[in-house]
Nucleic acid binder design. Structure first.
Lengths: 193, 193
DNA sequence: GATATAAGCGGACTGGTGTCCGCTAAGTCA
DNA sequence: TGACTTAGCGGACACCAGTCCGCTTATATC
């Protein structure tokens, strides 16, 4: 445990953190498997500083893609305004799948994070869970989902998304997976009323 | 690539491989995250010998649990003899889930292997795929599965199994997951005839 | 048994993750 | 502006995965 809880940071610390993120975005875009030590060096900070900010690769990746993650979570709210809840859910899952295939590094991070109790601690991860909960709540409201389904259940159900191989025919593969999952999610739904 | 294809091994080589597996079983039972170098040392072989036999941790784990894996795949055939195909499938998935929770190291290995093109190369993995294909074929025969479902689809659908946290209420969690997946697998099934 | 040969050995080495801890300098208060 | 306090720094370090290559020795052949 380090001083990562609250209170104002020292200004140099904040600058360092931002420089790391800047460099990380650039480097991770070039190759997913850049050594973290290289990112630290290019950002002009020591190993210690780097790891104090991002205790492991997953934490860094999640933070680097925070912007994209926020786009995704915003999309959930948007979809709920413009579509029926079940369509919104399905469409959102498709966006998620596209995202997973495009950002392999993020898929790796998600595989690591899902199913560890440390998961919800990640601030970026919490956003995704919130978006999911909103989607599920809207669907439960109108009775298009099986009863008792939680966000955790949902996350496990779509775990396959993070495993799809981006080479090969991922479009067909993810479509088949999502069809199947969607059917599972909706089976036994009480229906409207 | 090394001489891992066929032909008779030298006797000392075979002895070494067996000693490694012996030690690995003991060590992995004590703790899942034993350093591979320690296993090599305790088996009295060099790093080179170790890695020639097992190019990475997953390969070793898969081989160590080969016996258990074979029990599992045998169970598939057995279930198909004694039950209706859909019940057999469901029961087998439950065995798989129990297995995944019990052998955390194997879950880690499976997460690594699923979704990489290197997966099917693992001999132990191929056995599991065969078992799955038999279960699916039997179900397709009697029309209890959605059409066009392949073993790959199935593996992705149950990917969540490898993510279940063994601490916490994994029984309820896996039951909910399997209910959901099963409904998805069966949705749109043509039915008998 | 002596010889040839290549399968197999094993440990030094590379490169990466994550930790530790003595030191530096930013913020604070007078 | 100077002294004090401590958050934060950063690089040496420990440890592990995986590779490489000169050497050893099991086996085949005579």
């Amino acid at each position: 445990m380090d001083s990562r809880n609250d209170g104002p940071q020292r200004s140099d610390a904040q600058r360092n953190r931002e420089r790391i993120l800047e460099v990380a975005l650039a480097e991770l875009s070039r190759a997913e498997d850049v050594p973290l030590s290289l990112i630290a060096k290019k950002a002009g900070v020591g190993q210690g500083t780097f790891y104090r900010n991002f205790p492991n690769r997953e934490a860094l990746v999640l933070e680097v893609y925070r912007h994209e993650v926020m786009v995704l979570t915003d999309a959930a709210a948007e979809l709920l305004k413009t579509r029926a809840p079940d369509e919104a859910l399905r469409e959102w899952m498709e966006q998620l799948a596209r995202f997973a295939v495009a950002k392999v590094g993020l898929s790796d991070a998600m595989r690591q994070i899902v199913g560890t109790s440390a998961g919800p601690a990640q601030p970026g991860y919490a956003l995704v869970v919130e978006a999911i909960e909103a989607l599920l709540a809207a669907n439960h409201e109108v009775g298009t989902l099986r009863p008792g389904l939680t966000a955790d259940d949902f996350i496990l159900a779509i775990a396959g998304i993070w495993q799809i191989d981006s080479s090969g025919d991922w479009q067909a593969q993810s479509a088949r997976l999502l069809d199947l999952v969607m059917d599972g999610l909706c089976a036994g739904a009480p229906g409207p009323g």
